[in-house]
Design a protein around this nucleic acid. Structure first.
Lengths: 239, 239
DNA sequence: TACGATGCCCGCACACCGTTCGATATAGGA
DNA sequence: TCCTATATCGAACGGTGTGCGGGCATCGTA
């Protein structure tokens, strides 16, 4: 059967004339996907919802993107673009400050997008923007004096820490359904949760619960980052 | 309609007499779930498959476990039990060695279960075995001289690094479908992949690709761990 | 201006998922 | 032996990713 204009809809404003004007493209898809990701989380992001968000058919996106996995890759690279744009380059800064700037930029971006760590922990960021980010880190390490095998090791160490802490900050606590979302402050929340453990069986955990509850995710991240940089710096003076 | 024995099936071997003998319980469910997790990965783990694995109905598991999320929590705690059993306690060891033993035990366990990092990066390990693990780390930190707020910070730093590197080792590469699975050796694989980046645009990445390709995941983990411990140790001598 | 080719969009359908619910079978105590 | 709490199961609901074919819109060419 032929497509009929809806009741009361004038034919020259019909869907075919107005809406369907090459409406989908990569950037619109990525934008909508990111919005959906931020709003509904990684689990809530479905191709069908994405179609609805774009006011298009449920499977229309598949013309532009081969599958969901590829879409997630695109979204991740978009996040890396944001990170690259966030880095505060300081010409006179030390190599430590430069490396810290990269790590912090990544954390800030993932802080803006609550479901982003889930992406980064699933797939390697090897799109163009991901590589640009990696290139910056590699160069900063080279400037610091790391070369060859040692540079690769240092890279893995830094990346491991940054990724891990970010995941730590975003992974969902075993919510008893009591609290509202309260995104961020994950360590704080963990601390609150741990105040409920049996004191007799886990005295060390119990003791630390209060201290954990008073940490900011950001300061904890910064602390560990500096310790890692300390450790790396010590490697540069090989005695 | 009543249940009929299948054609050729003798009645006293019928399903109701043999198979259904209170067949399901928590430990069997966890065991089968772990097997399924190892075989099919986190995405491949479904409640229906779990039912099949247990030779029971598709939804029978729901009597013992409220939902899939709770099942995953159970599986994670099982992993932490394995980790606790893997730790090599050495009475005369330094606090560094003790902390390293915890981190390494976790890595070894996640190395045995290819999909385990996906679990740990999604949910906090706060089941009994997870807490036991955490208690050990907290005590080791206390022995080292970390107390109060500083202990919480050190804990977050170490946990962040360990979690991150483990995730790094297990996250799937953007497979072009070319290679077979080849689990493990994720850094190596990343290195091989990066040898294909345009040398002109990403010289630093290109240079490091070869070095990355020659790293073992294990030695990279160990290196970063020692650097983090170096950094933490330096905090203990506050001048 | 007419017409075919191509690019883009969409609905249908398939297989699978987590989960709810009611029916049913079993085990163990009265 | 009967009754009841416990355990298992099958069907069904709403959701998912995605392959497929049909059809519209647009454009290059005649």
């Amino acid at each position: 059967m032929a497509v009929q204009p809806e009741r009361g809809e004038l034919p020259w404003w019909s869907k075919s004339r107005v809406v369907r004007k090459r409406s989908l493209n990569a950037s619109r898809i990525i934008e909508a996907g990111m919005a959906l990701l931020d709003r509904d989380g990684l689990d809530g992001l479905s191709m069908r919802k994405l179609g609805a968000e774009l006011r298009s058919g449920a499977t229309s996106v598949y013309w532009h993107v081969p599958n969901k996995d590829a879409l997630l890759d695109l979204l991740l690279d978009q996040l890396m673009a944001e990170a690259n744009a966030t880095i505060r380059h300081d010409p006179g800064a030390s190599w430590r400050a430069e490396l810290a700037a990269y790590a912090i930029a990544l954390r800030v971006v993932l802080d803006r997008h609550a479901a982003a760590a889930g992406l980064l922990s699933t797939r390697a960021a090897v799109g163009p923007e991901g590589l640009r980010f990696m290139e910056g880190v590699m160069n900063a390490l080279a400037d610091a004096g790391f070369g060859g095998r040692q540079r690769a090791l240092a890279y893995a160490a830094l990346t491991g820490y940054t990724l891990g802490h970010v995941v730590l900050e975003q992974r969902k606590p075993p919510t008893d359904g009591s609290q509202p979302p309260t995104a961020g402050h994950q360590l704080q929340r963990l601390g609150v949760l741990l105040r409920g453990v049996p004191r007799g069986r886990f005295p060390g955990v119990f003791e630390s619960a209060a201290d954990l509850a008073e940490l900011t995710d950001e300061e904890a991240f910064e602390y560990g980052l500096q310790r890692m940089l300390d450790g790396l710096q010590a490697e540069l003076r090989p005695g």
